[in-house]
Amino acid sequence: MSRSSAEGFQPVNKDTVVSMWRERFGISEDVFKGFGFFRRGRMIWAFSLPEIPPFRCESIGMRVISMRESPWKPTTYALQLWGRHARKNVIDLNDEMARRFFAGESLELRAQVERGYVVVTHMGSVIGCGLYTPGKLISQLPRERRILDDQNAPEHHAQPGDTQQDGTE
């Protein structure tokens, strides 16, 4: 049956999601024009159509918010996509601090932002999600987005395109 398509994905009220981005980061609702939001488990996913097409889906669009914690936590990938439109709660790092943040370190710093999740940038390009408490910025980057020293890096560091022998790319 085609209705099994959206297995587990339930539409969520778009205003609820859009207002979170507006209130926390000052991101205009225009940025989300045309996108729909769906919930599966404790994650919210963004997708380009209001309805999920009738397929057996492994995944749709991308994960944008985790509801596991309160307040809801934006994903690094969503911030990489939309964070450049943020007007507040943004912390821009210099080269040295950006390198340490990418390595997963917590940084001692004070910034003019509210306590909670922030958009972390370097030269205006978004790195991802950080958690700010006064005096401290804690990396929320997913493990696979960390850049470690060569000696600590796994030999087969995820290199898209290197994964396959047969066929594409």
């Binding site: 963004a46 997708f47 097409p53």
Partner: peptide, 8 residues
Amino acid sequence: GAVNTIVT
């Protein structure tokens, strides 16, 4: 950041 995709 490919939001307009579904994976099957």
